[in-house]
Amino acid sequence: MVLLTLLAAITVGIVRMRNLFAVVVLGGIYSFLMASVMIVLDAVDVAMTEASVGAGISTVLMLAALHLTKTEEAVPTHTPLLPLFVAVATGIVLVFGTFALPSFGVAETPMNMHVAPYYLQNSIPDTSVPNVVTSVLSSYRGFDTLGETTVIFTAGIAVLMLLKGKRELKPGPKRRRIRR
């Protein structure tokens, strides 16, 4: 609960901050807190991934992109009243919806009664792998994971296509017009 409150506090910081460098560093802290919350929620595999991916790789990539662009955010020209209204309205509707959800930590929810007990009981007899997350990931739902790997492959190829090769030094006509 304390961790969740800290997460909310960091989020307020990210929303209000205008220096993008500070936003990225706060994002790293946010990811580590998120990893701690995931350990509390018993998701150790996910926490490990979040700590290395969210706090490590994505922070480094963000900093690399900031190095190639600017680190200061411009002052917005129009008032943020309409987006604020949309966001708050969405939030109220969603909070109203939570009262129909099962409360935290209950075992007899439909989600926990459906297919998860099968995995928990049959992982050892079927695959002799005690970590159920691994066995579900690569054996029971191997097709899913193949799809995810393909998505990563596609994204990597797309980034290579966009960023590889020499930078074109001649500035386009639009560039000059904006810089005047």
Binding site: T49, G54, T145
Partner: peptide
């Protein structure tokens, strides 16, 4: 364990799309 599996892959796909 099922949500763990889904989110584990979602995180890595998320960083790939972030890079894109």
């Amino acid at each position: 364990p099922l949500p763990h599996v889904l989110i584990l892959t979602a995180i890595v796909v998320g960083v790939a799309t972030l890079a894109l």
